[in-house]
Simulated scan of single mutants.
Amino acid sequence: MTSAPQLFDSVQIGRNLSRRKGTDNFVRDLVLEDLADRLATYKRDFSRAVLIGPDAETLPETLVTANGPVAAQRVEAFADADFPSLPPGEHDLVVSLLHLQTVNDVPGHLARLRRQLRPDGLLMAAFIGGESLTELREAFLAADLAVSGGASARVAPMAQVRDAGALLQRAGFALPVADVETHRLRYGNPFALMAELKALGAANPLADRPRRFATRTLLAAAAQAYAERDGDPDGRVRATLEIIWIAGWVPHESQQKPLKPGSATTRMADILGRGEAE
């Protein structure tokens, strides 16, 4: 078997997070608010829940479903280990927040999360989607071509929502669901966006990133390209933030199963109110 390509530098991600001046994170806050709304629709009692994410100490210790509160064990996503140290098969709810977008082997990671769950256990995950920061990616591409005649990897590749359900199925989950929340953000200028990314610890995490700092000439060219392509009449610039949500269940005999081909007992003609042709 071949190992997954190492797209992301986990050591550099840890450095980026450690250099932040605080733990304020509007992206995390958006995701936590959305998580609360989603969990509130589940009429299910969960007895052992795990919440995995960066800055685990800032995550809630209690989750709430339609049936009431659920105590959650908080686990740091970007600890020294590649995968959280959890006892397998003992949880009925695992929630992963803002982590999968920097995992090198997503199918393998999801399969390991599945092994932490009991039969009929639920996995929910939120991660940054593929349309995020397309404006910044295109601006740097144009700047690199203009300044040096080539392109460098400056914005991380991210998964598309169309692939998310297939990833769950590949990892062995049943009843997979995937959807996306898209947020349109605005900044005073492209440099304000770059500063916020750095403040969030979201600087370039790619293993194949340029080893030299971007020059002032390159940054100025990128800012100009950004403003020309995605600037508004008031001088501010637009940025896309896409959050993909996935959910899947560990297979269990109690779950709904699709009917076998040819087993339907109702004809489409009867549903449409049409009789036999005369």
Rank of each mutant, 00 (worst) to 15 (best):
L100A: 06
A203M: 07
G273H: 07
D34L: 06
D29M: 05
A202I: 00
R154F: 00
Q6K: 13
G68L: 11
A199K: 14
R118F: 09
L100P: 01
L175G: 02
V31F: 10
L51S: 09
A72V: 10
R20P: 07
R15Q: 15
R48G: 07
A207K: 06
G108A: 09
Q116V: 09
N104C: 07
A227R: 08
A111C: 08
E253D: 04
A77N: 11
G53R: 00
P258S: 01
G22H: 07
M124W: 03
T62P: 13
A192W: 06
Q101N: 10
P54L: 08
D34N: 02
A142F: 15
A125T: 14
L185Y: 14
D34A: 03
Y226M: 03
D270V: 12
E181A: 15
P119Y: 11
V11T: 13
A153T: 06
V106F: 02
V177T: 01
E138R: 02
A56V: 09
A207S: 07
Y226L: 04
E278S: 04
L51P: 04
R229E: 10
F46Q: 15
A142H: 05
L218W: 13
G22K: 07
T265A: 01
H252T: 02
L63V: 00
R28P: 15
V94Y: 00
F46S: 08
D144Y: 05
A225P: 12
A239P: 00
A199Y: 08
S148W: 11
L197S: 11
G150F: 07
S47M: 10
A142L: 04
E33I: 00
H99E: 15
A277E: 09
L136F: 13
Q73Y: 00
L185Q: 11
A192Q: 04
E90A: 06
G201T: 10
G273V: 13
L259S: 09
G150V: 14
E90W: 00
A225I: 15
Q101L: 06
H183T: 06
R229G: 12
I13T: 14
D270T: 05
P205H: 13
